[in-house]
Design a protein around this nucleic acid. Structure first.
Lengths: 345, 345
DNA sequence: TTGTATGCGTTATCAT
DNA sequence: ATGATAACGCATACAA
């Protein structure tokens, strides 16, 4: 099936390719009638300009990429939604890549984007490797990069993230105020930017309340569900925490399961708060206290910044850090109870 | 900054462009040492082949598109994950488009894909308009299409979906067996393929149990949260159902909220079951009985089929319908209770 | 194994 | 307002 191209269309109309080309571009001078005639015929023959020829000619792709570490998370769905919506508004296409928390994958993806495939990248970092050379390739190619949520500190790029330190501090303090004295911190990887910052908030809150921070109350989990459960079980049995602050929703869910299994009553025996974008946190049993990040906003904002950079290529691309405030929503899982048992009568 | 291209690289090496080109393609004959020399120099000068020139030359893009109606849904996150993973394995890139349930958007997206941007499309349909001409464009261009979950019946394309009719029938029967006599059916749009099929299962189950089906127990909702709540309230106040089958998770969540608001006890006064991929359905209050679709599998399978078609271009592209079975997971929200109130003592 | 020459489909420049 | 032509960067058929 011989593809239709501009030459054939021109021939069929008895016109030149330049005229036909003009019909598909808005600005050029062309007789409205001719244009109409061309478009009609194009429609009939099923012609539309070949994308790759145009892109080659104009050296632009009208495409951006989103790179995220995972997908199992409400946060990322919502953020992507914000990015995609913004891209659509700007007439851009959106490529999506999931690294599954693998920095090597991330590097591979980035490399595959540098040959003109995209004009910009919005990304949430996948790890905390030390050399982020792969990201420099983008800069060399003049491809702007905007981080959201998880950033690499050593990379010069604007980052749209949450006020994680403050939120973590507050959430921990919230647990303390409501009576917790032995608070566990649940984290996937305490060396990754986000795990680290959130931990700092936790540590500082403990300190400011004069509570000791015990290493074994910092529970580092993997991404594997079984493993998470085991880590929690091990640490809880030994350390007997009376509360926990989970840096990631998934860890809180496993904690809830563990508590149910060992009949640890929430909130009387144990309190729990976590970062989460779950819309139905209030319908859980018990209703879960959450730190809610503005995920959609974050994605949208990151994309907006990217498109600004794309418009004024000349604009100063200084590294900016934009913090969008999270909201702490206290629910039953951290409520104060008249805990007669604990008081002793 | 004058971009580096194959000519400059060749010049820098004192070689011809063809030799350089060969170094980046695996099959061609080339002296390994030359190749190595070229690659090293390329790395140094930051050269990689221009994507659009290559694509134009080879007329292939190594890209597929995913088109989905919405993003707020666990089902789609998981399905996309399956598709993206499969694409990655096949060395393809993945464009994503969200229609927000707008068939016009869908058509616009499709059109923008027909100029060579993608080699294939995986999509979940956004509506039930009658003319799906926009999809014929794909066929004309020889771009294979695979539906997942929601299909257009009039379009000749393979569809990977759930055994929705059977699941709906069973779920409704489950409610009946557990004592419900006035069962509501909650649906976003009863004319869309999936809403229609699921309704048929519901209706047939009622019929086979000898229960009447009352029109006003079929509650058609929009996508707007407020509206959903109002529709449910209106119908529930008038029709006093003692159970409901929700074709979409979101509707069930609103139902739960409504029940809480009006102190309708679940499962004693009212039972609820719904389609949902929520992993934490068992942690809701009450634990929610669900029909769980294999979302990840569905996406994966749809992508696999697409890539098969992409490999053997010649393969018979007959319309196939592949049904992946869902699992009904009964939980407390549909449990039988010793309902002394109801029995009258 | 390497080089030469041509064309992929489009758009911009220049001429008419 | 329209047409002729060159160039975008690459990959292949063919020649050496």
């Amino acid at each position: 099936m011989s593809q239709i191209n501009i030459k054939k269309l021109a021939a069929a109309l008895g016109l030149s390719t330049s005229t036909v080309s003009r019909a598909f571009r808005n600005n050029s001078d062309i007789n409205p009638l001719t244009k109409e005639r061309i478009l009609r015929m194009a429609d009939e023959l099923g012609y539309s300009p070949n994308l790759y020829a145009s892109n080659l000619r104009e050296s632009k792709s009208k495409t951006i990429a989103i790179i995220i570490p995972e997908f199992d998370n409400n946060f990322f769905s919502q953020a992507i939604k914000g990015i995609e919506q913004q891209a659509r508004r700007n007439g851009y296409h959106t490529l999506i890549y999931v690294t599954e928390d693998d920095v090597k994958q991330e590097a591979t993806f980035i490399r595959s984007l540098c040959n003109g495939r995209v004009e910009g990248v919005v990304m949430s970092a996948s790890g905390e490797g030390l050399k982020h050379v792969h990201l420099n390739m983008l800069k060399e190619r003049g491809i702007p990069l905007v981080f959201f949520d998880r950033c690499y500190e050593d990379v010069e790029a604007t980052c749209v993230t949450g006020n994680d330190y403050e939120s973590s501090y507050e959430a921990t303090l919230h647990l303390i105020m409501n009576g917790c004295k032995r608070i566990a911190y649940l984290v996937v990887n305490k060396n990754v930017s986000i795990g680290k910052i959130r931990m700092q908030g936790y540590l500082d809150a403990l300190k400011s309340a004069g509570l000791p921070c015990e290493d074994e109350l910092i529970i580092e989990c993997t991404n594997d569900k079984e493993e998470i459960y085991k880590s929690i079980k091990r640490s809880f049995e030994k350390m007997k925490p009376d509360g926990a602050f989970a840096s990631v929703e998934r860890l809180a869910m496993t904690t809830l399961r563990y508590c149910a299994d060992v009949k640890l009553e929430i909130p009387s025996d144990f309190k729990l708060v976590c970062f989460s974008c779950l819309e139905i946190a209030d319908m859980l049993n018990p209703p879960l206290s959450t730190i809610k990040q503005p995920a959609f906003e974050m994605g949208k904002r990151a994309a907006e910044i990217l498109f600004e950079a794309l418009c004024n290529k000349e604009s100063v691309t200084e590294k900016q850090v934009i913090l969008l405030p999270s909201t702490i929503i206290p629910r039953k899982s951290t409520a104060v109870v008249n805990n007669t048992k604990a008081i002793g009568l």
